[in-house]
């Protein structure tokens, strides 16, 4: 790899960014630009692919190769790019409607194959671009233009969806938590195979208050838990609460600060079962988990694909005529 030094600015294009003032997407954009700059890969090796929705304008705001495709299909377009040229670092930017409703099938199969895509799913729990309809992650009971009496649909939990599909890298970030998001993006960038990152993102016109509980300086530590590999699952303003498991059911115990009991679980990001249980945490019973849920290694689709082809042996030198003739051609003199 070339040893090149780039900054976030190198990844910012000349054209203006057109999201609503205060949109969570600005913060994520800045983190993605910073992460790419830090990876040591030149611009031309990056491709950002998106579908339709506010988040999907993302490629226009990146000074890389970019493809703003059609609704829900970004993982498919991106899979074609990655398999065609595995040297490229291919990022998919999608939203809760784009990625889990119309494009659910493609996200699902990208994960199943473990193809080398970084899938960033910006979860604002609403169809924002089409002006406020319920999305597959809108919380039950929410009043929207298509649910004036409150939604009755059970919502998807995107991170848990990916864990359920055995995705080898799954994380959840928060638009305003720069340090956390940046850490997650960097790990995702270095991950081989599908990396699925859900990012909670507020939408100023429609879901402005959606994640306030996770952002309030005074209260947030009681509402969220940051999970870290090898660290005990502790939360609370005074770090006096911990997660325990009894008979495979999670529970909360309280203790004196600094005195963490032994039965408080220590997070293990290689443990799929633990990731599944923790990712299911819902307010108000449990704190909302943020961080890297799962990070394990398994061969990526493109690796398996090209290894298999290599095992067949190189037949490229075959003359076209030999190839076309096949084994059973005959000669007419």
């Amino acid at each position: 790899m070339e040893n090149i030094k780039l900054t976030a600015k190198d990844f910012a294009p000349d054209s203006p960014v057109k999201w609503c003032p205060g949109c969570g997407d600005f913060a994520i954009l800045a983190q993605v630009q910073r992460t790419m700059a830090a990876m040591g890969l030149p611009h031309e090796k990056y491709v950002v692919v998106s579908g339709i929705g506010c988040s999907s304008r993302f490629p226009y705001y990146m000074n890389t190769y970019g493809f703003h495709s059609i609704h829900g299909r970004a993982p498919a377009v991106a899979s074609g790019i990655k398999l065609a040229n595995p040297e490229l670092s291919v990022w998919v930017v999608t939203g809760d409607g784009d990625g889990l409703s119309i494009g659910g099938n493609h996200v699902l199969h990208a994960i199943r194959r473990n193809i080398g895509l970084k899938i960033l799913l910006f979860n604002n729990r609403i169809y924002a671009m089409t002006k406020g309809q319920a999305s597959p992650t809108t919380q039950q009971g929410t009043k929207t233009k298509t649910s004036p009496m409150g939604t009755i649909d059970y919502p998807f939990n995107p991170a848990r969806f990916a864990i359920g599909l055995d995705c080898a890298f799954v994380a959840r970030g928060l638009d305003t938590d720069m340090a956390l998001t940046s850490h997650i993006l960097e790990r995702a960038a270095r991950h081989k195979g599908t990396a699925f990152v859900e990012i909670f993102q507020k939408c100023i016109p429609f879901t402005d208050k959606e994640f306030d509980g996770l952002k309030d300086k005074d209260k947030k530590d009681d509402f969220l838990i940051k999970i870290e590999h090898g660290k005990p699952l502790v939360f609370g303003r005074n770090r006096d609460k911990g997660i325990i498991f009894r008979n495979f059911r999670p529970g909360i115990i309280e203790f004196k600060p600094g005195n963490i009991p032994d039965d408080v679980a220590v997070y293990d990001e290689t443990n799929a079962e633990m990731a599944y249980l923790i990712s299911g945490f819902q307010a108000p019973e449990f704190p909302i988990p943020l961080g890297v849920f799962r990070a394990t290694e398994k061969s990526s689709y493109e690796e398996l694909y090209y290894n298999q082809v290599a095992a067949v042996g190189d037949t490229k030198s075959n003359e076209l005529e030999t190839l076309l003739a096949g084994p059973d051609a005959w000669e007419v003199k």
Binding site: A76, G80, L83, H109, V309, V312, T315, N318
Partner: peptide, 24 residues
Amino acid sequence: ANDVVVFQTEDEIAAICTSIGAAF
């Protein structure tokens, strides 16, 4: 093995979309 990349996709839409991606 002859520089032919074949991708059996999850559906018809993905079939054309992966191909458009590969063209890009």
